[in-house]
Design a protein around this nucleic acid. Structure first.
Ligand code: ATP
Length: 1107
DNA sequence: TTGCAGATAGTTTTT
DNA sequence: CTATCTGCAA
């Protein structure tokens, strides 16, 4: 027999004792009488390093503390050497089936190297460094899948399954069934951890749990809390045997558990801590769930939850039930038997004394002869232990965060026992610990929820209404737009009025009701995010992705590039990113001796290409520079972003004049965010729409925020001139935001005059909600910190500490009533660099997030190397990439690069000809770099078109010893999403790679807070929106040149505010944005200043234990 | 050729 | 405030 405690934490977890180090844990394992303890926190790199150093492999899959770290202790009884088993706990916070789930999982692994491998995988998903119990936005099912994928021998145990806020069955953010959580992988779950607040009899009331081994662990946050609960095994001390014992319920290899009295837990009963009301589940039901004192909602405890999910009466014992013993920690027994408190110095002294005189704690509590105990500890403690073994203890149950209180001896008894001497003789020694204990509660089994009689008639009403109302849940105006038969339809309307919904509905309508094949649908968006969003909405409707894949949905650039590629006779079209474009401009400026800023020049070139001169505002870029730039791109055989559109336009115009009809894909054309079109994009739309069956455009002049890119609202007017028979629809009901949020937004935009015939009309359709909030942060750091803390609050706390701390002094808000998921929250800002400090704070808080924005991958030197190499192989005319390769991969000197490029430019653009040139032009033996480059060319040349991007990149990493680079790993993860190399490289440069994480060939999209610029947020919506940096100089943005358009900045602010559905939080600074004063305080709650102050950490330790 | 130190210029928003 | 460039010395 051996006793094991698997679930513990290291000092690297939050709110744990600094003493949670291997030495102290091992010492306390001995003191407690444990034979095996978990390491805890295997996901934490520093902890793994410490384990690696201080532990040594001992037996099959287990470890032992190295002798030199052992702390001596004069413990009575035989010497022991507790083993360690690699364990850790992971917190998953995610949304599933429309609800926020917070689930903790305990993972056991057969070794530190497995821990290393699994951590490596999880590293890509979340932040493992800030907390020994990391928080991942990962579905618990997916976590299980990844775990088994990395280590099939892993043991995955849902942790403390009844804890209200963080568990599988938790009342607040858990599931009702195990299937709902783990779905197809449920078969890989063999054990469940019952946690401190429940014991086996409570769990026996659910027949659904019969198939699982019920384990118990301490979840200790300090070494002395070890073994509060533990598992008794009757098998060999090895990892495989433990795994077997947990799986095979029909043997006695897993013998049973040592338990807390569940009433001692903080959430056993229902109640209200402030009102000192403690109720049994039946009493709560009778009270209608409301507190009899204050009338507020009762906090529901574990017993209630068990009762609610149970299908058996209290007291039912399943045939395969395992043995269990209920114990109370020895210091508490001493305290409760002597009338002192457990934490008192006296009790602690006596406790340690007893360990030294009698042996380990579990031995004293379970096995030591009472007469021995009496001799060493006195009659009171001996009587206390006797009663404990018989289950004769009285407990005032815990509720609403209040601990249960143990009573073993009362005051009178203490008086009478302390007089007696030698109360016990030896014969009571063999009394086994009582498996039953006194329970004087009766809990009525609640009747199954009566069929809701309203449901039926409600449904019928709905049906009737639906027959008259427009389909797809549209309002009449929206339906008018969806069903319009005119060749051109425009929907001009404000934010949140359902423009996108209308567009999507029309697509659905055309396909399902009008028989239009999906391939005839083309929808153009502005950002990749918007395209993705649209695809998701359509996929959600059609269920299968085939239909949606047949449509053309994408940005102007993506659709144009696809067209160009299709028409390029099998040649790959190469697009260069901004970095490369910039370096070309730099070269030219240097060559010409012009000393303007390359960025500025490139911007100017871009504007010209986008038709700025046509719009009458040509930037003053020297013609020579412009010509040279275009010539250089030509020579390199590459396109920049703008060329994609120019070429696509050229192609369409040529088709047009050549009489060849354009692709049928443009039968039905949809354009989102029409107000952001610039000249070239408008002309493209006009070309594509020639001969199409319908064109449907949606837009909002008030959301025009791309003026810097040449967009102008005048294209609405132009559209009216160029198209005839237009059906115009306006929508005025805002379905997105609460009236409060909408009022704030409207008071900002109303300062802006409307142009043309557009009438600004926007009415809230939603019920009233909370006012928007305004906070003044002393500095950027305080602001970011506030955001992090507030997100923490919004999700209802991301660890047990936060979950139930009552609102502290001051005007701090209570924990959110309705917990949010991370993906419900967006943090928006004006410029990308604001993300940095936000990231730091979110990282420290352990909040999962994704930053949408500048593609850091493209800028990375290693990635540049790899992409240039493959780009060149795909299109040997790409001298740009060849140049990069020669510089980096072949480590050629700059003038050699120029020479080689020069010769190659003259020659035939093919791989063999390059190889010839390389051979001819350098001395033999060739320099090492060049030699290796040649070999790479020869190796990858033949396979670059056939190989999967994933395989190619992986091999490339191997061949160039790049596995150290995080960026290459990221590249590899992205590569797996694409089928062929050209598509991969093109999508990469268009920034179309998604925030997805791959593991074992499967793609996961973990829940995360979205960080993005105001521009990036356009067209999206979030229940909660933070707007950061509403400061003078940032919004409206001012460069010292000072050429930003204040109207556009105002619209940008407006766009930001109208992203919010329920909650809008505005963050400003001592020098606020002038726009803020336009918002009526009637709809805005000014919460004053937030300054960073160090939180008192001291009491957190005590707060934690015992849930 | 390489390494270092000091100077200097650049610091929206997207594809 | 920081990443990159330049110039100088070894
Ligand atoms: N008729 C309707 N009934 C209920 N909800 C609706 C209706 N129309 C739209 N909505 C909801 O309103 C929200 C906003 O819709 P949508 O994103 O289509 O607005 P939009 O006009 O495109 O906004 P934006 O201009 O900001 O992009 C969505 O959550 C959508 O589901």
């Amino acid at each position: 027999m051996f006793i094991a405690d698997f679930h513990i934490h290291s000092k690297y977890s939050r709110a744990t004792s600094k003493d949670c180090v291997p030495e102290a844990l091992e010492l306390w394992a001995r003191r407690k009488g444990l034979d095996l303890i978990g390491t805890g926190d295997f996901t934490h790199p520093a902890w793994r390093a410490e384990l690696q150093e201080k532990l040594v492999l001992q037996g099959d899959g287990l470890y032992e503390l190295r002798d030199e770290y052992r702390r001596e202790d004069s413990l009575a009884g035989p010497d022991s050497k507790p083993r360690f088993i690699v364990t850790g706990e992971i917190s998953s916070i995610y949304k599933k089936n429309g609800r926020v789930r917070k689930i903790h999982s305990l993972i056991l692994l057969p070794g530190i190297s497995e821990a290393e491998a699994l951590s490596h995988k999880l590293e890509a998903i979340g932040n493992l460094h800030s907390d020994g119990r990391p928080i991942l936005g990962l579905d618990a099912r997916d976590l299980l899948e990844i775990t088994l994928d990395v280590c099939p021998d892993a043991i995955f145990i849902p942790a403390h399954i009844w804890t209200p806020h963080f568990s599988l069955f938790g009342a607040y953010s858990g599931f009702d069934t195990i299937e709902e959580c783990f779905e197809d992988l449920m078969g890989y779950i063999h054990a469940l951890e019952t946690g401190l607040s429940s014991d086996p009899p409570m769990n026996w009331r659910l027949s659904a749990l019969d198939a699982f081994t019920l384990v118990s662990n301490s979840d200790a946050h300090s070494p002395s809390k070890l073994a509060r609960e533990a598992n008794i095994f009757d098998t060999a001390l090895s990892y495989p045997q433990i795994a077997r014992a947990l799986q095979n319920r029909d043997t006695q290899e897993f013998y049973g558990t040592i338990e807390f009295f569940p009433e001692e837990g903080k959430y056993h009963c229902d109640g209200h801590r402030n009102c000192k009301v403690c109720l049994l589940p039946s009493e709560t039901e009778a009270a209608g769930g409301l507190c009899p004192v204050c009338g507020g909602r009762i906090t529901v405890g574990v017993l209630h939850r068990v009762t609610a999910l149970s299908d058996r009466d209290e007291g039912f014992v399943p045939p395969a039930a395992k043995h269990f013993e209920s114990l109370v920690p020895l210091p508490e027994v001493i305290a409760a038997s002597t009338g002192l408190t457990a934490a008192s110095v006296k009790v602690q002294e006596r406790y340690i004394d007893l360990l030294h005189n009698l042996g380990p704690e579990l031995f004293i509590l379970r096995e030591a002869a009472l007469c021995d105990i009496e001799r060493k500890a006195g009659p009171l403690v001996a009587e206390g232990i006797r009663r404990l073994r018989r289950g004769k203890v009285e407990i005032l149950p815990g509720y609403d965060g209040e601990y249960g209180k143990i009573k073993i001896l009362d005051r009178n008894e203490i008086g009478s026992f302390s007089g007696q001497l030698c109360f016990f003789s030896g014969e009571e020694k063999d009394v086994p610990p009582a498996p039953k204990k006194v329970r004087n509660k009766k809990v009525a089994v609640p009747a199954p929820d009566a069929e809701d009689s309203q449901t039926k008639s409600g449904a019928e009403d709905g049906l009737r209404a639906a027959l008259e109302a427009p389909p797809y849940g549209l309002n009449p105006e929206q339906w008018e737009a969806v069903s319009a038969s005119e060749p051109a339809v425009t929907v001009i309307a404000g934010p949140g009025t359902g423009k996108t919904k209308t567009l999507v509905s029309r697509v659905i309508h055309l396909i399902e009701k009008c028989g239009v094949p999906p391939s005839e649908i083309t929808a153009v968006t502005f950002t990749n995010k918007a395209a993705r969003e649209m695809r998701e909405r359509l996929t959600a409707h059609f269920g299968d992705s085939r239909t949606v894949q047949a449509m053309r949905i994408g940005t102007f650039h993506a659709i144009s590039l696809k067209l160009l590629s299709e028409r390029n006779g099998g040649e790959t079209v190469t697009v260069i990113d901004e970095m490369n474009a910039l370096s070309i401009v730099e070269d030219i400026l240097k060559r010409l001796g012009v000393k303007s800023s390359p960025r500025e020049v490139l911007r100017g070139i871009s504007l010209i290409k986008n038709g700025a001169s046509a719009a009458g505002k040509a930037p003053d870029i020297p013609q020579e520079v412009y010509d040279l730039y275009c010539a250089q791109l030509e020579r390199y055989g590459v396109l920049d972003y703008d060329d994609i559109l120019l070429r696509a336009l050229g192609l369409s115009e040529a088709d047009d004049s050549g009489g060849e009809p354009l692709l049928s894909a443009f039968s039905h054309l949809f354009v989102d965010e029409f107000q952001d079109l610039n000249d070239i994009q408008y002309r493209i739309i006009r070309e594509w729409s020639k001969g199409c069956k319908s064109i449907f455009i949606i837009g909002d002049p008030d959301q025009s925020i791309y003026g810097f890119r040449g967009s102008a609202p005048r294209y609405f007017e132009q559209f009216k001139k160029d198209f005839s028979n237009i059906r115009h629809v306006s929508l005025t009901r805002n379905y997105r935001s609460t009236p409060e949020i909408l009022h704030c937004a409207k008071s900002v935009i109303s300062k802006e005059r409307t142009t043309g015939e557009y009438v600004r009309l926007l009415n809230a359709n939603r019920d009233s909600g909370a006012r928007a909030r305004l906070l003044n942060a002393a500095d950027e750091f305080s602001e970011a910190l506030f955001v992090a803390k507030e997100i923490n609050r919004l999700v209802g706390g991301i660890d047990m500490l936060d979950a139930h701390v009552s609102p502290a002094a001051g005007k701090k808000r209570a924990a959110a009533k309705h917990p949010r998921g991370f993906s419900d929250i967006a943090v928006l800002y004006r410029v990308n660099r604001q993300a940095e400090i936000l990231e730091q704070c979110l990282l420290k808080e352990g909040i999962p997030y994704t930053v949408a924005g500048q593609n850091e991958l493209l800028a990375d030197a290693q990635v540049q190397k790899a992409t240039a190499f493959f780009r060149f192989l795909l299109s040997p005319g790409d001298l740009m990439s060849l140049g990069t390769c020669l510089k980096t991969l072949a480590s050629c000197r700059t003038d050699d690069v120029q020479k080689l490029l020069g010769s190659f430019a003259e020659a035939e653009k093919s791989l063999p000809s390059l190889l010839d040139i390389l051979k001819a032009s350098c001395p033999s033996p060739a320099p090492e770099g060049l030699q290796r480059f040649t070999e790479l060319l020869q190796k990858y040349g033949p396979v670059v078109r056939k190989g999967k991007p994933y395989q190619l990149i992986e091999a490339f990493i191997g061949d160039n010893a790049l596995s150290e680079f995080k960026s290459m790993e990221l590249l590899l993860n992205t590569a797996v999403l694409h089928d062929d190399m050209p598509a991969f490289l093109q999508n990469l440069v268009l920034g179309r790679e998604a925030d997805l994480v791959r593991s074992g060939g499967r793609v996961y999209s973990p829940d995360a807070v979205s960080l993005m610029t105001l521009h990036g947020a356009k067209g999206l919506e979030f229940p909660v929106v933070f707007l950061c940096g509403l400061n003078e100089g940032l919004i409206p943005f001012k460069r010292h040149g000072g050429d930003s358009d204040p109207s556009e900045e105002r619209r940008l602010f407006y766009v930001g505010m109208t992203r919010a559905q329920d909650e809008l939080i505005l963050l400003t600074s001592p020098s606020p944005s002038p726009f803020l004063s336009d918002i009526s305080r009637q709809f805005l709650e000014d919460e004053g200043t937030f300054a960073h102050r160090p939180a008192p950490e001291a009491q957190q330790l005590n707060l934690f234990d015992g849930v």
